[in-house]
Design a protein around this nucleic acid. Structure first.
Length: 483
RNA sequence: GGCGCUAUCGUCUAACGGUCAGGACGUAGCCCUCUCAAGGCUGAAAUACGGGUUCGAUUCCCGUUAGCGCUACCA
């Protein structure tokens, strides 16, 4: 019996610009698993491709992860026993382990030029065989290799894949998966620029950082045999694997830019709540086993298990996200909504008298808001006089008598001392009765005059919030403009 | 092409051999109503196909098909 130690997991993104929602979900499942099991969640930056490095991407990644509410225990800016947590700062470590592989003849130097490799692949394709390194440099004598190395010939280090064996991996989500070694390429481990490739750095770091469970996207499944082999070459215990189903575009291809927003920042900017986005992506591939759908992050921690993660890819459906966001929004304290809505209003150049006013607007909008940004469009008229009148609404609700009706209402409102919902309702209804029409014949044109549209909160509530002065101004303008 | 993964309503999913195949988003209709939301009720909507195994397959096995992923000195 071995002592069951607390699990350690990691999220290991490469800093290519922004946090992808697929990455968010991978991070989330790692986070949930760690928190649920009382383990440790590590953040590691995999920046071994210098050509793809984006300035500021690491900071942005950390910031966005923080916004999402996924706090990590060890990583850049946080420290920990196993640092540094940025791979470009660990080059010496990788070189050391490559040396060990070389010494054990589990790896070899390769001097083939990119041009030659290119040509080789073309030939293989022409012959309709699987593209695979032809091991030309494996046949080099030790002396030949040494002299080329000494002569400064550019080289890489490749791992030597054993012949005719099968590599079985056991995946928590997918069960047993078997690969034939003859189908596996002699993977480059160390590039000619001295940087490691993902495969080497990933295995070495996972080992050195004590990672017990590798929870990552399904796209890594085909390269897992290489990783398993590396663990064996080093004599290390292989961690548990869990390959997550992919997040998909509407056409079922791997979720990508160009088919909608894929950056967490995009959803943040659109006014979605972090808790809602997290709730939504959690449900893409996992479910609690019953019919609950609305979860705060703490609930997710309590309920999560890798066993309940599905195997098939899931389409990122924004409609459902909107609904979930709305569900989260209505559970929020109105005072919080007031604060959250302010930045959106400022960005839109809209002004408001005070918090009390904002509170009333939000109360009036009720469940109509599906995001904080909505207030700038759906509730625009609470902050500025309408500059145009919706055509469809006008056609439907504005009649030849409307101007006369509104003029009469204006006179009534000028006389009325009180400006309350009750009084207003009575005024409008009495007036309508006097004209011999239904209240709707007045209500709709008035709403159009006040808001420029035909949708929104109840009319009397709207009038009270706007106040007598604004109401009168807008009514007069409408009579003037709409005739 | 090779290798691998996957396959339940349009979408996210439940069912771990026996259910009228359930829920949610979306959608249609009705109710409520000054509009729009919200809410309530109702409806349409799925086990890819073909073989097995079994008294009985969504469920287990095989095949086919389809989709996706990987096949870089990218991750």
């Amino acid at each position: 019996m071995t002592v069951q130690s607390r699990p350690r997991v990691r999220f290991a993104p490469s800093p290519t610009g922004y946090l992808h929602v697929g990455g968010l979900r991978t991070a989330l499942y790692n986070y949930l698993f760690a928190r649920k099991e009382g383990g440790t969640f590590v953040l590691r930056i995999e920046d071994t491709d210098r050509s793809r490095y984006v300035e500021g991407a690491v900071e942005n990644l950390i910031e966005t992860l923080g916004w999402s509410g996924l706090d990590y225990d060890e990583g850049p800016g946080k420290g920990g026993e196993c640092g540094p947590y940025i791979q470009s700062e660990r080059l010496d470590i990788y070189r050391k382990y490559v040396g060990e592989l070389l010494q054990k003849s589990h790896a070899y130097h390769c001097f083939c030029t990119p041009e030659r490799l290119d040509e080789m692949r073309k030939q293989q394709e022409k012959m309709r065989i699987a593209p695979k390194y032809d091991r030309q440099c494996l046949r080099l004598t030790g002396g030949e290799a040494a002299s080329r190395l000494a002569g400064g010939v550019p080289s890489v280090v490749r791992m030597k894949i054993p012949e005719s064996t099968s590599i079985k991996i056991s995946d928590i989500i997918r069960g047993e998966v078997e690969f034939q070694s003859d189908r596996v390429d002699d993977q480059v481990l160390l590039k000619s620029d001295g940087y490691p490739t993902y495969h080497l750095a990933n295995v070495v770091d996972d080992r050195l950082m004590g990672i017990t469970h590798v929870i990552r996207g399904e796209e890594w499944l085909p390269s897992t045999p290489k990783h398993v082999l590396l663990y064996r070459y080093f004599g290390w215990e292989v961690p548990r694997f869990a390959h997550l189903p992919l997040l998909l575009n509407a056409d079922r291809s791997k979720l990508s830019k160009r088919q909608g927003d894929v950056a967490v920042e995009d959803y943040r900017a659109a006014g979605y709540l972090p808790g809602a986005l997290v709730n939504f992506v959690a449900l893409l591939g996992w479910n609690p086993g019953d019919e609950r759908e609305i979860f705060m992050i703490g609930d997710l921690v309590r309920e999560f298990s890798l066993e309940r993660v599905g195997r098939s890819g899931a389409i990122f459906n924004v409609e459902k996200l909107k609904w979930i966001n709305q569900q989260h929004l209505r559970r929020l304290d109105p005072a919080v909504v007031v604060e959250k809505v302010k930045p959106a209003l400022k960005r839109a150049g809209l002004d408001w008298p005070d918090d009390r006013y904002l509170g009333r607007v939000i109360a009036a909008m009720g469940d109509r808001l599906t995001s904080f940004e909505d207030i700038t469009s759906f509730a625009h008229y609470f902050f500025a006089d309408p500059d145009r009148y919706d055509d469809a609404a006008r056609k439907k609700h504005w009649s030849d008598q409307s101007a006369a009706h509104l003029s009469a209402l204006i006179r009534k409102l000028e006389e009325n001392a009180d400006f309350t919902e009750t009084i207003l309702e009575e005024t409008v209804k009495t007036l309508a009765a006097g004209f011999g029409v239904g209240a709707g014949k007045l209500i709709h044109p008035v709403r159009l005059a006040l808001s420029g549209r035909s949708i929104g909160p109840g009319l009397y509530e709207l009038m009270v919030i706007l106040g007598r002065e604004t109401v009168l101004r807008r009514l007069r303008k409408a009579v003037d403009v709409l005739g």
